[in-house]
Design a protein around this nucleic acid. Structure first.
Lengths: 225, 225
DNA sequence: TCAAAAGTGTTAAGTTTACACCCATGA
DNA sequence: TCATGGGTGTAAACTTAACACTTTTGA
């Protein structure tokens, strides 16, 4: 074993997760009201530390799994946060990831144990350390990605109505979308497939349920949604 | 001092720099033909390690300065690279940054000492570890950024001709641009200012020299270039 | 019967693309 | 005088944005 690097210092490599969920027309984040030290009682992202035997991507998956019980979740790295005193207790270089989860599927017991709550992205409390900066960067990145890749479907159930899809994108972009223009665009995307099923919850009349067909998408040279 | 984290492992936090330069219509990277261990003799990015007293952003600036002698350079973080065996010798979590430098201004002696060379981005040799992946990600990110923010000017001298500007963007996007459409767009951007000066190097006739006015830009609600 | 969400096309405005010739100059 | 890069405008194609009414049905 060489030791070319041994005169350099080592650091904790933290992981912080910005967990997006969508419910009732609102984009939410899953945040901890910390019932542990440090910064007990304050709001923060779910976090953890990279271990010897795992990549940082795997660490992020583990941290997400520990809170939600979920695997195979869509995650993207937001970036590394390396200010010297970002964590006032110890030097920690943290890597932030965002995750898009289907709000129907997570493990509610685990979330309760961690004292975690869904909070509307437009009504976030102050967060510890640089977590608010991480959230801002994650939102921009996710918004950007959602405008060119079909990642939004990760936030919806397998079957969804066009109204749900529209209100999701309105929440992501933070602006209203014209219903007819929206539906016209969706109609051109043959990887968004109308099913025979009808949703009766959302309205008296009932709305057609659609599904995202990932195979059909991959062949498509265009993007958007 | 608390020790909430003390049961977690620590890691080297590496820094790797993707250094872009533009010369004679070509987009180039400044790469090391390594004259030191590990991986002596192979090609790599310029790198270093985060120290106790510096943020990762500062470490990146230092690493860039050590090679080029330059300060106040445009840099952006590309992301963290945390695969367990990405460096086969030791566990290193590395953070990649890209930099845009004016190819006229760097310190040639320092570059020579480091055995570094400008290599066309389209003719890159194999690089050590995951450096080729870093480069790919940096190129995409830079291209993306260049399409919405006026970062390209960092790669040009203060005064430049429209032909230079066009060939720069052709190199960044990897595709040809129509001359008349390009100039029409530039004419609409009042933060790209025509000067009285004339360049006589590039052509017999001479071409008007332009400059980027950053103050004019900041007021402008539009973007592009 | 009425409130509430579902569903449906057309036109105008704006943006993007394609395209060809004359100009000035140094060699 | 001619080869080289500098400089210039218009029309067609395409994309985006604006806009209002009818349908269904459960309460």
């Amino acid at each position: 074993m060489n030791n070319y690097y041994s005169h350099h210092p080592k650091f904790y490599v933290g992981i912080d997760c910005i967990i997006f969920g969508f419910n009732d027309g609102e984009l939410n984040l899953l945040l901890l009201k910390r019932n542990f030290q440090p910064a007990m009682g304050e709001w923060s992202l779910m976090g953890g530390f990279t271990q010897e035997n795992e990549s940082t991507d795997d660490a992020a998956k583990r941290v997400l799994h520990d809170l939600t019980g979920l695997d195979n979740v869509y995650m993207e790295q937001v970036g590394a946060f390396g200010e010297v005193s970002r964590d006032p207790g110890e030097r920690v270089v943290s890597i932030a990831y965002y995750a898009l989860i289907n709000i129907d599927e997570y493990d509610r017991k685990l979330v309760q144990q961690h004292n975690a709550f869904w909070v509307n992205v437009n009504e976030l409390p102050p967060l510890i350390f640089d977590h608010s900066i991480m959230v801002e960067k994650a939102r921009k990145l996710m918004q950007q990605k959602a405008s060119t890749k079909p990642i939004g479907f990760n936030l919806l159930p397998k079957l969804f109505t066009l109204s749900q899809l529209q209100s999701l994108y309105e929440a992501i972009y933070g602006e209203e979308i014209d219903k007819r223009n929206f539906r016209k665009r969706v109609a051109e995307m043959d990887y968004i497939e109308k099913t025979e099923k009808i949703d009766k919850q959302g309205s008296k009349r009932g709305a057609a349920l659609y599904q995202f067909n990932n195979k059909a998408y991959r062949k498509d040279p265009k993007f958007k949604l």
